[in-house]
Design a protein around this nucleic acid. Structure first.
Length: 278
DNA sequence: AAATAGGCCAACCGCTCCTCC
DNA sequence: TGGAGGAGCGGTTGGCCTATT
């Protein structure tokens, strides 16, 4: 059933690596995509000199290396938005993620499964239906779908940032090791990164406005932020373009299209990540 | 201090969808 | 029109880390 998975016993190909990515692999993949864009994922590992399947490279890029990713814990506004979107969309994580700039479907899925479900139950809400859990005692989760127990959440763990941070290639050292301020929206990390690489952008970006946006999620400043980002990153490897479609308009949300550079599009300065930082 | 349990996250797996020929 | 291959999605799991005993 289905096609052969790329991992493991694929047959024919040289043995592919699986498991955690090393900093060297991250750097290869990142530099390859920054230089050449994605193109065809199945050819990326070969072109980038990686012993991974294309699928694995795609996942790593989307979930970890993408420059537009937010880092850090979810804000209360994001939390509320996820809950609201889940009520509408169900487990369509990619669609939910499309309304949360900088968040990945995997990240949201994990957050939902590990924190939000528990939190909703604590509030007497059935995470599956988003309706109040009925008074009927046997309405408590007994079916296979909702088989999680009713253990109280570990207070700090519920929404606290994950203390675990792997010692691997970090495309956004600003978020951690550079001491960059990581506000609710995590966007401060980006200028911090570029400060580390190309100069001081703190005077260009009004970081306070980002903080503001987090306190006003239904009417936040993503568009303005996009313009700012565009200003800052113009001439750099990235270009931000605010986009808005009907669905987003309905939800009052805006998102950004991160236009990855490709050879046809623009010629770009290249920067290598300096692993000394780690 | 050591053992154990639980939480969390990264990554894999298998499936469906989409596009091209 | 149907098959092949690539891309994307959601579910699941392995393993690390922290808290607790």
């Amino acid at each position: 059933m289905g096609r052969l998975s790329c991992g493991g016993g694929g047959g024919g190909q040289a043995k592919l690596r699986k498991g955690l990515w090393s900093p060297e692999e991250d750097e290869k993949l990142y530099n390859h995509i920054i230089r050449h864009g994605v193109g065809c994922w199945s050819s990326v590992p070969k072109l980038a000199g990686l012993h991974r399947c294309g699928k694995s490279c795609r996942l790593r890029w989307i979930n970890y290396l993408r420059p537009d990713l937010k880092r850090g814990s979810f804000s209360l506004q994001e939390e509320d938005l996820i809950v609201a979107l889940h009520e509408i969309l169900g487990n369509r994580w990619s669609q939910i993620a499309s309304h949360l700039p900088g968040r990945t479907d995997n990240e949201i899925k994990n957050f939902w499964n590990s924190c939000l479900k528990k939190k909703l139950r604590q509030q007497g809400i059935d995470p599956a239906t988003h309706k109040p859990i009925t008074a009927m005692p046997d309405a408590l989760p007994t079916d296979a779908q909702e088989d999680e127990d009713q253990k109280p959440p570990t207070g700090a763990g519920a929404l606290a940032p994950n203390p675990k941070q792997q010692a691997v290639f970090d495309p956004f050292p600003a978020a951690t090791d550079f001491g960059g301020v990581f506000d609710h929206d995590g966007l401060a990390a980006v200028p911090a990164l570029f400060e580390g690489v190309t100069g001081d952008y703190s005077s260009v970006l009004d970081l306070d406005s980002y903080g503001e946006s987090s306190s006003n999620s239904s009417n936040n400043n993503w568009n303005g932020c996009g313009a700012e980002m565009s200003n800052v990153l113009d001439g750099e490897a990235l270009h931000w373009a605010p986009i808005k479609d009907d669905d987003d308009a309905a939800l009052g949300e805006h998102k950004f299209l991160l236009q990855m550079p490709c050879q046809e599009q623009m010629s770009l300065p290249h920067f290598d990540f300096n692993l000394e930082y780690f």
